[in-house]
Computed example of a mutant assay.
Amino acid sequence: MKRNLLSAAVIAASILSVGTHVAAQDFPKKGKAINLIVPFAPGGASDILARLVGQKLNEQWETPVIVQNKPGGDMVIALQSVARSEKDGYTIGLTTSSFALNKVVKKDFPLDPVADFAFIGTIGQSPYLLAVGSDSKITNFKELEAASRVKNSNFSYASCCFGTYFSAEMIKNATRLDGVHVPYKGSSPALNAILSKEVEYIIDTTTATKPFIASGKLRPLMVTGRKRSASFPNVPNMTEAGVPGDFEVGVWYGFAFPAGTPEDIVKKTNLALNKILAMPDVKAKIESFDIEVMPSTPEQMTARVNSDLQSYLSAVKLAKLDFGS
Score class of each variant (00 low, 15 high):
residue 8 A to I: 12
residue 18 V to D: 09
residue 21 H to G: 09
residue 24 A to L: 07
residue 25 Q to V: 04
residue 25 Q to K: 02
residue 26 D to K: 03
residue 28 P to V: 07
residue 29 K to G: 06
residue 37 I to Y: 00
residue 38 V to A: 03
residue 46 S to Q: 14
residue 50 A to K: 03
residue 57 L to D: 03
residue 59 E to F: 07
residue 60 Q to E: 10
residue 60 Q to H: 04
residue 65 V to F: 12
residue 74 D to G: 06
residue 74 D to P: 02
residue 75 M to Y: 14
residue 77 I to F: 13
residue 78 A to Y: 03
residue 88 D to N: 15
residue 91 T to L: 10
residue 91 T to P: 05
residue 94 L to P: 00
residue 95 T to N: 09
residue 96 T to V: 14
residue 98 S to P: 07
residue 103 K to L: 07
residue 105 V to P: 05
residue 110 P to L: 02
residue 111 L to Q: 04
residue 111 L to M: 13
residue 117 F to A: 10
residue 119 F to W: 05
residue 120 I to A: 13
residue 120 I to R: 04
residue 123 I to K: 00
residue 124 G to D: 14
residue 126 S to V: 11
residue 131 A to G: 07
residue 132 V to E: 10
residue 132 V to C: 05
residue 133 G to I: 07
residue 133 G to Y: 03
residue 133 G to E: 06
residue 139 T to L: 12
residue 141 F to Q: 05
residue 146 A to G: 03
residue 146 A to R: 07
residue 147 A to Q: 11
residue 148 S to Y: 09
residue 150 V to R: 14
residue 161 C to R: 01
residue 169 E to I: 03
residue 181 H to C: 13
residue 183 P to K: 12
residue 188 S to H: 04
residue 194 I to Q: 05
residue 194 I to C: 09
residue 213 I to Q: 10
residue 215 S to D: 14
residue 217 K to Q: 15
residue 217 K to F: 04
residue 219 R to T: 15
residue 222 M to R: 02
residue 224 T to C: 01
residue 228 R to C: 04
residue 231 S to Q: 13
residue 234 N to I: 08
residue 237 N to K: 00
residue 241 A to T: 08
residue 243 V to P: 05
residue 244 P to H: 07
residue 244 P to F: 08
residue 245 G to V: 07
residue 254 G to I: 05
residue 256 A to F: 04
residue 258 P to N: 02
residue 259 A to L: 10
residue 262 P to R: 08
residue 270 N to T: 15
residue 271 L to E: 14
residue 271 L to P: 02
residue 273 L to A: 06
residue 277 L to R: 01
residue 278 A to G: 05
residue 282 V to H: 02
residue 292 E to F: 05
residue 297 T to R: 01
residue 302 T to L: 13
residue 308 D to N: 14
residue 311 S to M: 14
residue 314 S to M: 11
residue 317 K to S: 14
residue 317 K to G: 09
residue 317 K to W: 03
residue 317 K to I: 10
residue 324 G to F: 01
